[in-house]
Design a protein around this nucleic acid. Structure first.
Lengths: 336, 336
DNA sequence: GTAATTAGCGCAAACGATTGCGCAAAACCT
DNA sequence: AGGTTTTGCGCAATCGTTTGCGCTAATTAC
């Protein structure tokens, strides 16, 4: 009743702790334990409802059946969704997820990563905030490590990210094809790789078409979208004929602003957005957008991570880093 | 370089392991360690970049700075959001979150709870799926435990949940006040307490008004909303004049169905929904809804949990269970 | 009848940190 | 100079598991 450890079971059955351990961790055959012993021990074990202390187990084996997931802001619906996907996929593989939030801060990021190490997580999936891969690569040498959503141009780490350059380019070209010539892009966190890529893609398309493109904003938030859209359209002489929102949160803010200015997407200004969110189809007009295959990215990240873990477990040579740029798709609706 | 443990630091500084431990865990003063020792040790510690092994620490202290969060389906945006909120709030208090998903299965729920115990989490926040509080109360005696979103009628556990009865009643009364007389309610998971309460609230309002109310459906999903709405409205002779969607996922399905049937909310059929989701304001027409104060619930749950943890830590008498039914608010828009 | 296997299991050392208890040396008092 | 207190620190047990190694007894081989 009181306590259930290998020790107590060992005392109650008369077998040694090691034998009990081997039986209860399914290594009975490997160590040639007699059937009698196996029976007595398993019986006692589930009679007293024994459950191994996973902490002790982790201490000893340096494994924890846990993956650390680090995101830069779980309150953001995008990362909330991404996290949910990863948690679900890891769960399906029998792993638990320890979630940490760096809040876009490099220091918090370091802390969280240290914490992961100290807890001996078996692997890490990280949406990095730092601009240099150094910290990540260092840890990646000790712990299987995969980047998700954001990556580094030069790195030996594996990653699974959307091809944001292609996505932004595609969206912009679509706008241009529709005849828009002066496009406002409202961006998110400027330092983040996906954002930079989107800017690159946007400008590349605009420039090679000889059109005009402007980039403003600084956060993946509704507020940022609202403010920037207000600033841009609050004047009669606004010359922008289209807006490219770099995330669905930004889009929402933008729409809010347009509404309060009595402007309507498509009719008065072309609108296109990044990010997938089922709701976009239910807006009026439904929003044309570049959808990121989030689930695909998550699933690739998880798979890659397990491949690395697997290779290390059997001390095979590390597989070559798998660096995936996943192609987003243009979903054409009625907003431009 | 190689290893950093109390032992290695102790060897390198010449002090004993216990002294090193006390210094590095900030108990230097309590144990009257000399300034000299403190200096030497701290210096060595951050020179070699020492980080305590949290697993060993947990094993010894039976604490882990971790809270277990158990939800019945993280892929559901509602729980994804709720989880994100909880993770964020716990993070703000310096705690980490271990997330598990019961997938609406009682067995998975038990497994996860066992796992939490074996990992010695410091507390548990749980959206229960079982219909009896027994399992939860049992664990609650050993580990600080708070229910979130779903609760049990008779229980000694604390909880923070939306007052779903009041919410549903309020929504229904609003519909009735608008003149709707034959209302279809599309429900979620029938066994779950919030759902049952919503059904109760719905029927109570309908009955006391002498109107007609029908409850269909069985999941908090888009698909369920779509199917049930199709079934109900796909026939010319449908007599329902309004729909009450029990969640925003259900709502989306419903809208999809209505659209494909060329029906428009407000004009052809009254529509009202449960759940808060900023997007609902951007639909056309904007959806009237009962908003649950999710953040409030999460924050109350976390606060209650920490109060319990605190009381136990200093072995005070357990605070009386704090059982909160948080009032939702009606947000009136244009869909009915 | 002796030697070589093999089956079955236990000893004890990890893993890294925490902490109650107690011992010496230094400091103070008379 | 002898006794008491305080200061500063170390010993060793403990948390619960895992695992390399080796011991004993039974079996088989020759």
């Amino acid at each position: 009743m009181e306590k259930n450890t290998l020790l107590t079971i060992s005392e109650r059955t008369g077998y040694s702790v090691s034998t009990v351990s081997r039986v209860l961790s399914g290594k009975a055959h490997k160590y040639r334990i007699s059937q009698a012993a196996v029976d007595t021990i398993t019986q006692e074990a589930n009679q007293c409802d024994y459950r191994p202390n996973l902490v002790a187990q982790s201490l000893r084996t340096r494994k924890s059946q846990t993956i650390g997931l680090l995101v830069p802001g779980i309150e953001n619906p995008f990362f909330a969704t991404l996290s949910a996907i990863v948690i679900e996929l890891l769960g399906a593989r029998g792993y638990h997820t320890l979630v940490a939030d760096s809040g876009e801060s490099e220091e918090e990021e370091r802390n969280a990563l240290n914490m992961f190490q100290s807890r001996s997580v078996d692997g890490i999936i990280c949406v990095p905030v730092s601009t240099s891969p150094a910290v990540h690569e260092k840890i990646g040498r000790r712990i299987p490590y995969v980047l998700l959503d954001r990556y580094f141009r030069e790195t030996s780490l594996s990653y699974a990210c959307t091809d944001n350059f292609a996505g932004a380019r595609m969206a912009t070209e679509f706008l241009l094809g529709k005849g828009y010539r002066n496009i406002l892009a409202i961006q998110g966190v400027p330092a983040s790789m996906p954002n930079q890529e989107r800017v690159r893609g946007f400008l590349s398309a605009v420039n090679s078409a000889g059109a005009k493109g402007t980039v403003v904003g600084d956060a993946f938030s509704v507020g940022n979208g609202f403010r920037e859209a207000m600033k841009a359209f609050d004047q009669k002489q606004s010359s922008f004929d289209a807006v490219f929102a770099f995330s669905s949160t930004i889009l929402l803010g933008t729409i809010q602003a347009l509404r309060s200015l009595q402007l309507k997407p498509a009719r008065d200004v072309g609108v296109i957005s990044f990010d997938n969110n089922g709701f976009l189809d239910f807006l009026d007009p439904a929003i044309t957008r570049v959808e990121q295959p989030l689930r695909e990215a998550g699933s690739q990240a998880v798979e890659t991570l397990f491949d690395i873990m697997d290779a290390r477990r059997r001390s095979l040579p590390e597989p070559a880093p798998r660096q995936l740029l996943i192609q987003p798709t243009l979903v054409v609706r009625d907003s431009c």
